[in-house]
Computed example of a mutant assay.
Amino acid sequence: MIARLLLSYLRRHTALIFAFFMGAGIFAAVFSLYDLPEEAVAYASALTAAVFLTLGGIRFSVFCARHRALLALNKRIDVELSGLPQPSSLLEAEYQRLLRALFESKRALASALAEKQAQTEEYYALWAHQVKTPIAAMRLMLGASDHDAQLDAELFKIEQYVEMALGYVRAQSDQTDYVLNRAALDEIIRASLRKYARAFVLSKTRLSFRETNLRVLTDEKWLAFCLEQILSNALKYAPGGEIGVYAEGETLVVSDTGIGIAPEDLPRVFEKGYTGYNGRVDMRATGIGLYLVKTVLGRLGHGISIESAPDCGTKVVISLGRDETAFE
């Protein structure tokens, strides 16, 4: 570190060092023309070099102190800008003034964006609450009369799209209400499977569920949200097939015997808005579900990966170990 700082300092003062040696050379040449004793010239040069090195050492120590102050400031610059070193020149003072103006502009912009995000989330929460009321009423009316089971399925899809829209807005916020607890994974899985039970029946899809007997540190609501998105995808692309839910060590696996994912699409399935070949065939795909799953699981400290091939089904693996860096 010191060597790198010294090299940077010398480069910063290259012109001054060059001027010193040029001056020393000029004085030596002039003195030699007047036949002055070499000892006197050498003595004067040594004294000058000592003074120059002493002043340079002092200036270098100040340079190191300012560098340390800037490194310390770099750790908290997102919060405050106090603690900048005193400017040593008019130009440096102007640079600091410009930096403070940019910081204030950034803080004002961040505040405006946070307020806008809060308003958007509030609007969608209100919208979701209002739209759920007629959905509940329709479900009651359907339950009180003979009807096509397909109507139930379509109503269920509407409910899921509402949940996805609300989840999308909340996932974009830095203040989402994650609450971590030790939870029984099997209870979360069963609740999600019960929610999708009718969809399994209507699509004639078989379910293979093996108890995991795992307890995980997670947010039950958001993990269930992710699991439901994965189940929804599996049901969409594997109707009449089989969906398996089981554990492999400390991971949760959701597998299906559906149409699979093309190799060129697999690296991009978690990208926002990316639907791939399957999405272009199924015009209803939004490209949001897996993006949300990846985002939420990352914030919970979990991971996700997908293994798939065309006509060979898909295997979604959720690693339930908590990544501490997700909460730093």
Rank of each mutant, 00 (worst) to 15 (best):
M141K: 12
A50Q: 05
E307S: 11
L36G: 02
M283P: 09
D311M: 10
I318T: 09
G83N: 03
V253D: 01
A112T: 13
R190S: 09
L109S: 12
G57W: 08
L7Y: 09
T295E: 12
A19P: 06
L126I: 07
R68H: 11
L300C: 04
C312P: 00
M1L: 11
Y277I: 15
Q96G: 04
A42K: 12
V41Y: 01
L90R: 14
P239E: 03
V269R: 02
L207T: 04
N233E: 06
A128V: 11
G273C: 06
Q117Y: 04
A19S: 15
G279E: 01
A112V: 11
L252Q: 00
V269F: 06
V62F: 02
E242S: 12
A234R: 02
A93M: 03
A28I: 10
K236Q: 13
L185W: 03
M138S: 12
R280G: 05
T133I: 15
A262T: 11
L252F: 05
G143L: 08
F60T: 04
G279S: 04
A114P: 01
W222S: 08
L6W: 14
G23N: 07
V281L: 07
V131Y: 07
F225S: 08
G321Q: 15
I318E: 09
A40R: 08
T205G: 03
T325C: 07
A199N: 08
